[in-house]
């Protein structure tokens, strides 16, 4: 579903934020992307979703290249940033309708999905309020609903559990499980190693822009815990 091959991304001042990164995510995978602050997680994710361009490598989504067919790729994915800045002057429902229009979601389908996910995340009552009045968690929930409303094949999330209350975190995990069961794939970054360890069937660890470990969770962590492995890799130069 997602194939990243030899991705390199250099910023203006010559700093290589991502260096020759390769990663494969198949249908049915939930892949946790782990790394310290500034390791290159968000840069990688932004390259995958077509927000940032990159100099080297290819990114294929369901076989399509994000560089050559950005619109075709974006139709297949949904992205939720770590701190979603949404159009604050719109109401929640206006924003969801806007996203649905862009992804050309049929009227009946969008009504069904918005109702389903807004109810699940307990946001229905607030959909008529302007987004500027929302708390951080409510904005996060709205961004999640907007990502799910067009039934993406690949869901990409940057720190999705930050700001969510325990119940919403649980709901989101249930939604994610249902998605992969349904033949979709999920790629998300997180700092919560327990979540990654228990929830993801694949793990990728990035350090200073390069992937230092990746593969099936059980194989990557071996006999120890993911936390132990991460600490070991962090200290190892």
């Amino acid at each position: 579903m997602l194939s990243i091959r030899h991705l390199s991304k250099t910023y203006k001042k010559g700093k290589k934020a991502v260096d020759d990164l390769s990663l494969e995510i198949e249908v049915g995978d939930i892949c946790g992307f782990i790394g310290h602050n500034g390791a290159g997680k968000t840069t990688t994710i932004k390259c995958v979703v077509g927000i940032l361009d990159f100099e080297e490598g290819t990114i294929l989504i369901d076989g399509k290249s994000i560089a050559e067919d950005p619109i075709g790729c974006k139709k297949l994915i949904a992205y939720i940033p770590d701190n979603p800045d949404l159009y604050e002057a719109l109401t929640g429902i206006q924003y969801l309708n806007f996203v649905s229009d862009i992804y050309e979601v049929a009227k009946a389908k969008r009504e069904e999905l918005i109702a389903r996910y807004a109810d699940a995340l307990e946001l229905t009552k607030n959909l008529g309020d302007v987004i500027s009045s929302y708390s951080h968690g409510m904005k996060q929930k709205l961004a999640i609903i907007s990502a799910l409303v067009h039934e993406p094949k690949l869901l990409i999330l940057d720190e999705p559990f930050v700001g969510l209350d325990p119940k919403s975190s649980y709901t989101l995990k249930e939604i994610m499980k249902a998605m992969v069961k349904d033949g979709k794939a999920i790629f998300f970054s997180t700092h919560i190693l327990e979540v990654a360890e228990k929830f993801c069937n694949k793990i990728a660890i990035i350090k200073n822009g390069s992937l230092v470990a990746s593969g099936k969770t059980e194989e990557v962590k071996g006999d120890g815990s993911l936390e132990e492995l991460f600490m070991e890799l962090s200290h190892h130069e």
Binding site: S100, K125, N126, G128, D129, S133
Partner: peptide, 16 residues
């Protein structure tokens, strides 16, 4: 900022 928290799902308009 105040929230009315009284939204009820109704029919949505679709656009291009």
């Amino acid at each position: 900022s105040t929230q009315t928290s009284n939204f009820v799902m109704t029919s949505l308009e679709t656009s291009s």
